[in-house]
Structure formats: structure tokens, C-alpha cells
Design a protein around this nucleic acid. Structure first.
Lengths: 187, 187
DNA sequence: CATAACATACCAGTTGGACGGTTTCGTCAA
DNA sequence: TTGACGAAACCGTCCAACTGGTATGTTATG
């Protein structure tokens, strides 16, 4: 669809498109709706083509999950660069990265929803666990206070609340909550 | 399996057993593994019998989710009864209920994991959203401070960390974290 | 004996994925 | 510049296993 004026094959583009479609299906219809037929159908790519890019369904899911993690890493790194204070920097980066990812409509639709859906598969849970462990080891010097842990947990909770659409909180209350969380990282 | 010395048919027992098996499959193998064949096979009940108790797969999933919510409600209520201080009582009840549910091996294996897996289906997400909204309206008088909200979010995060098995935290650190959370509800 | 609680058999559609074919691409010699 | 050629990118078809669900039993229970 809409290859437009680019005539050359763009395998990376197709690959990304397949991931996007899989992500959209996952967030909108749930895990059970992510089938090879559905992905290939909704993306206009044949199933053979899909299986060329991702040799199996598991490979597709893992690739999707990895791309989400990369996006999160990039967002965290960006947030940390703008933060002069070392103490609790990673925790604040994690907080702001999660907040930033929920809004941007570009690329993968709903980052949080897709992540959640993918976490329902045990194999991908292990990947997440590894990610968490790596980070917590890396920033043990600056982000291991009790309050920092609480802020990170609350960030996960916020992430969870967002994806479930519990929109009972107005923006000002939300902002006060975030301010308070930032404050907790600095204690 | 193991109807033992009870000769009479026990439809409620069978029903509960079916829910347990579905829960175990969900938490151990993920959402994609929860099929009617798998549930009936693993429980020793025929598929016909399964579909007698739950007219469709959706009905089964919804019933399972409802049973989890009931369990959570009961645990919260129990925790709240033991709490003399009105201010922040629901938040503390929520915290302690989630902590209590994760340990007990009886009945449904891993409460958190199953809940998470079920939340990957959009239809069930709506049920959860309703649950949250009801509670937040009911306890608006005692549990609407910023810190209480943070504690509830952190509880969700803790719940999430537990289910992902991020076991990097030792018990003493965990206890200090919980103490701090309780402290925050009392501010 | 009516109804609930199961089991057994069966079905049409879907599933993941294997397979062989066709087009496009990069590259390197002539 | 060309053209050959192997690899990469993709398509269409086929299939066995499985899917959720129905229809029809059989047995227990009140």
C-alpha cells in the first residue's frame, strides 16, 4: 500500500510495517488476534513474505518486543542527557521516558498496550526480566534508594493505569503526582 | 482427577477446577495456550463438559477474570477490617491484599500473572477499568491524596514486578519498601 | 421423569508454516 | 556499459494439526 514514488524495494520499510501492523493488532484486538494470516492480510504482504522477514511467529513477536525495548532505551537515554543531577537520574529518566512514550502517536500506536499484551507470553517476560536486571545493576550507585524504587514502581503503575485508560485523573492532578514523584527521587 | 471418595457429582467443584486449569495454563504458557482443547484436556473434563459450564470461550475467560476480581475484593475487605485508621485505609487494604494474594498457593496459582494475561484481551480490560472506577468513587473521601495515589500505583508496580519475577530485591529491602509505602498513606 | 451434568462424535474454518516459484537487487567481470 | 549470476525479497499454494462450537447422545440427580 502506497509505495508511491519509491520504486525500489525497501525491505527494512516492509519489515517495520509488518511490526507496526502486528503491534496495532495486539493493542486493538488482543494477543489472540495476532495471527500470521491477520498480520499479512492487514499489511498487504503475503504470508510467504511475512515468513521471509520473520521465520516464525515467535520470531515476529520477539522482534516486536525488542523494538519496543529499543524505543524505551532511546527515550530513557534522551531524558537522562537532559538531567544534570546524577542522584536518581536513571529513575527520573525512566519516569519521563514512560510518560513521553505514551503520547507520541508516531510509529507504534500504543506502546504500553503492546508491551502489556506481549508480556502475556512467558518467553517475552524473560526478556523483560533481563532488561530490568541489566539496568538495575548498571545504576546501582545512583538509583538504589527505597524512594527511587518506589518511584520506579509507581511509574510502572502509571504506565498500567494509562494503558487501561483509567482516565479519572485530570491533568493537573497528574502533574502534581509526577512532580511529587520527581521530588521523591531527589531525597 | 482424584474425585476420590466423593461419589456424587459436584458441578461447582468441576467448574472451579476448570477455572483453575485455565488459570494455570494462562500463567504458565500464556494467553495463546488457553484453548478449549487444552483446558478440557488438562482438567480431565471433556470439551462437551467444559462447554456445558461455560457456553463459549469468552464466557470462560470472563468468569475467570470475575473470580479473580472477587478474590481481590475479598482480600481487600479483609485487610481493611483489620485497619482502625480511616484515612488511607482503602489504599493500605489494596496494598496488603495484593501482597497477600501473591503468596498463597491455594486455588489459583499465580493471581498476578493470570490477571496480567487476561488483561491482554481488550474486552476484559474494560471490566478492570470499571472495577477501578467504582472503587475510586467509593473511597474518594479517605484515599484521594497524591501520596495515596502514588502508593496505589506503586502497588501495581510491585504487582507487576512480582509477576515478572524480578527477584533482585531481598526480603528486608522489600519490607522496608512496604513500610515506607504504608507510611506514605498516613501522611 | 424432567432436568442438569456430563461424554462422544463430528464439523467447517483457521492456524502456523513448509515449499517451490518469481521477481528484484547488488556486484563484479568483460 | 553491459550482462551474467547468486542472493535477497517476496508471492501463491498446499497441508496437517488444531480451533471454537454444534449436535446428539448417556448418565446421574432431584
Amino acid at each position: 500500500m502506497s509505495t508511491a514514488h519509491h520504486r525500489k524495494k525497501q525491505p527494512l520499510f516492509v519489515r517495520q510495517q509488518l511490526l507496526d501492523v502486528a503491534a496495532r493488532l495486539a493493542s486493538e484486538k488482543g494477543m489472540m488476534a495476532v495471527t500470521l494470516d491477520a498480520v499479512s492480510g492487514a499489511s498487504g504482504v503475503s504470508k510467504g513474505g511475512l515468513l521471509h522477514h520473520f521465520p516464525s511467529k515467535n520470531m515476529l513477536l520477539e522482534a516486536l518486543f525488542d523494538s519496543l525495548l529499543e524505543r524505551l532505551d532511546a527515550a530513557i537515554e534522551e531524558a537522562m542527557r537532559a538531567d544534570p543531577l546524577p542522584h536518581g537520574r536513571f529513575t527520573r529518566g525512566y519516569l519521563h521516558a514512560c510518560l513521553a512514550l505514551r503520547d507520541q502517536p508516531q510509529g507504534t500506536k500504543d506502546w504500553a498496550q503492546v508491551t502489556m499484551v506481549l508480556l502475556s507470553e512467558p518467553q517475552l517476560r524473560q526478556r523483560w526480566r533481563d532488561w530490568v536486571r541489566e539496568r538495575s545493576e548498571e545504576y546501582v550507585g545512583t538509583d538504589s534508594s527505597v524512594d527511587a524504587a518506589i518511584v520506579r514502581l509507581a511509574t510502572d503503575g502509571l504506565w498500567l493505569a494509562d494503558l487501561l485508560g483509567s482516565r479519572d485523573m485530570d491533568e493537573s492532578a497528574r502533574q502534581r503526582l509526577i512532580d511529587r514523584l520527581v521530588e521523591l527521587t531527589q531525597l
